[in-house]
């Protein structure tokens, strides 16, 4: 059976990717690693994968008006609910940022002046890294449907895991609580929530746990940089206790984590004896036993 483990956080910058990288290099067995933060993928910087395959991901479509055909009737603008059709300098045009790709303007245009163009600049890469296989998505900046690209990354991971007989898939999730996060955790076996001792992180953790209530998933919380605020760490522990969510570990603040990243290593590779490495190993053993 394939085990899928997702590392999420709500708040950005709490240390998801550094912890995922450490997990990926602790395991004696090979893993399939998925970077699902398709907006701002970073794990490849530490893992330096050799890319074997690159696939095009169609994130959606945008409408385009052919001004040779357009009769300036304005019907498209009346129907568009995304305020994506503007009328300036005597002609109608599509505002690409606002266009949602619903195709309604194309369908209602009486003279067929509107067509849809595919957004095909996003990519999905897969290949080898030093402890297994890695898949990561690269959403073209500004494009939509990151949740669908996440689903595509995860499908590819399952395929590879099957072919290569690897039984662990590690998922580095995006921040937030929107579609990409939902897509990165649905159906996984375990969710590790990485938080840090701050009011902002606590408020984000509350919303993350609310989101997880909709899923029946096994989960635990790790408090990263816990010694930066013992007071907030206590509050987070109390909050988790009140919600019945277990604390699986408390990781100290240590600038060595940044040093490791600069050297394209995970913290457990860079210094297996550091207090951070020891705690991460403990967490890994805890959640995989």
């Amino acid at each position: 059976m394939i085990n899928e483990l997702a590392v999420i956080s709500g708040k950005g910058g709490t240390g998801k990717s550094s912890i995922t990288a450490a997990f990926a290099t602790i395991s004696e067995n090979r893993v399939v690693l998925a970077d699902c933060d398709v907006d701002a993928a970073n794990l490849h910087i530490i893992m330096e994968p050799e890319i074997e395959f690159t696939e095009v991901y169609i994130s959606g479509e945008k409408a385009k008006i052919d001004h040779q055909i357009c009769k300036n009737c304005g019907v498209c603008q009346d129907y568009c609910r995304f305020d994506a059709i503007t009328f300036t300098e005597g002609k109608y045009s599509i505002d690409e940022i606002s266009c949602d790709g619903c195709k309604l303007c194309e369908r209602v245009c009486p003279v067929k002046a509107i067509s849809m163009e595919k957004s095909d600049k996003s990519r999905m890469h897969s290949g080898n890294f030093r402890n297994g296989k890695m898949v990561y998505g690269r959403l073209e900046p500004g494009e939509e449907n990151s949740g669908k690209l996440v689903a595509m990354v995860r499908n590819r991971c399952r395929e590879i895991a099957g072919q290569e007989q690897i039984d662990t898939i590690l998922i580095d999730s995006p921040p937030g609580i929107g579609c990409a996060v939902i897509s990165s955790i649905s159906g996984v076996n375990y969710v590790l929530i990485v938080t840090e001792p701050s009011m902002s992180a606590l408020s984000d953790l509350e919303r993350t746990l609310q989101l997880l209530e909709g899923f029946s998933l096994e989960k635990g919380v790790a408090i990263n940089k816990h010694d930066l605020s013992p007071e907030l760490t206590e509050r987070i522990i109390d909050f988790c206790n009140s919600k019945g969510v277990g604390i699986v570990g408390k990781i100290p603040f240590n600038p060595e984590v940044v040093e490791a990243m600069i050297n394209s290593k995970s913290i457990v590779e860079w210094n297996p004896l550091s207090n951070v490495s020891k705690e991460i190993v403990k967490i890994w053993e805890n959640i995989t036993k």
């Binding site: 907006d39 940022i97 959403l139 900046p141 494009e143 939509e144 990151s146 921040p175 937030g176």
Partner: peptide, 13 residues
């Protein structure tokens, strides 16, 4: 919002 996709674009736009 963080990231480089639609929520970020709408804000900077």
């Amino acid at each position: 919002p963080p990231g480089t996709s639609c929520p970020f674009i709408h804000t900077v736009n």
